[in-house]
Amino acid sequence: MIHNPITQLEQLTITKASKNFLKETAKWAKFLSIIGFILIAIMLVFAVFATTIFELAGKMQPGMPASLGLTMTVTYLVLAIIYFFPVYYLLQFSNKMKTALSTKNDETLAKAFEMLKSHYKFIGVFTIITMSLYALLIVVAVFGGL
């Protein structure tokens, strides 16, 4: 009898050990997402006060660019928005995984893994973009210095 790989995957069962690993993973995911949301809140608070902070710093340190506060505000707002999505996906993974394991619901389990996939996909794409920007910066620095 020839087994279809898709049929074999559909019959995949979660053992007690796997269930415990997934429970623990969901707990750590929740912890990391809470820390992530706290850091986002700190970024937003800094973004709100950055203009005032850098305006005061400019008075104490002559020569500081006047637009630095606005630049920092925009930067921290953009970073908070970017950081929100992977943290949100991680929290959703945690909540859905806990629900799926307690209710033994396959659809909720699939949604949990979908959120985990979204989290890692976002992190992966962001990493590629960041590395590309670094490579571009290096090329500009090397050829701009000639």
Rank of each mutant, 00 (worst) to 15 (best):
M1C: 07
M1P: 09
M1S: 14
I2A: 09
I2R: 10
H3V: 14
N4K: 06
N4T: 04
P5M: 06
Q8G: 04
E10W: 01
Q11D: 13
L12M: 13
L12Q: 08
T13G: 07
T13K: 13
I14C: 09
K16T: 13
K16D: 15
K16V: 11
K19Y: 06
N20T: 13
L22I: 07
L22A: 11
L22P: 03
K23I: 08
A26Q: 11
K27Q: 12
A29S: 15
A29C: 08
A29N: 05
K30Q: 13
F31H: 10
F31N: 12
I34L: 07
I35Y: 01
I35W: 01
I35L: 12
F37N: 06
I38M: 10
I38W: 01
L39D: 07
L39I: 10
I40S: 02
I40D: 04
L44W: 00
V45T: 15
V45R: 04
V45W: 09
F46P: 00
A47V: 08
A47G: 07
A47W: 08
A50M: 03
T52H: 05
I53Q: 04
I53S: 01
I53D: 02
E55M: 05
L56C: 00
A57I: 15
G58H: 01
G58F: 02
Q61G: 00
P62M: 03
G63C: 04
G63K: 02
G63I: 06
P65V: 07
L68V: 05
G69I: 11
M72I: 14
T73G: 02
Y76A: 09
L79Y: 11
L79C: 10
A80V: 09
I81H: 00
Y83D: 11
F84Q: 03
P86S: 10
P86W: 07
Y89H: 13
L90R: 10
L90Q: 14
Q92A: 10
F93H: 01
S94C: 08
K96L: 14
M97V: 03
T99A: 14
A100I: 07
A100T: 09
L101R: 08
S102Q: 12
T103K: 11
T103N: 08
T103G: 02
N105P: 05
N105I: 08
N105R: 06
D106A: 15
E107L: 10
E107F: 10
L109K: 12
A110V: 08
A110T: 10
A110H: 04
K111C: 01
K111H: 09
K111S: 14
M115R: 06
M115G: 06
L116V: 00
K117C: 01
K117G: 07
S118F: 04
S118G: 14
H119S: 06
H119P: 00
I123E: 12
G124E: 03
G124S: 15
F126H: 06
I128L: 15
I129A: 13
T130L: 15
T130P: 00
S132F: 05
L133E: 12
Y134D: 06
L136I: 14
L136K: 01
I138N: 02
I138K: 01
V140P: 01
V142M: 12
F143G: 00
F143M: 03
F143K: 04
G145S: 11
G145M: 02
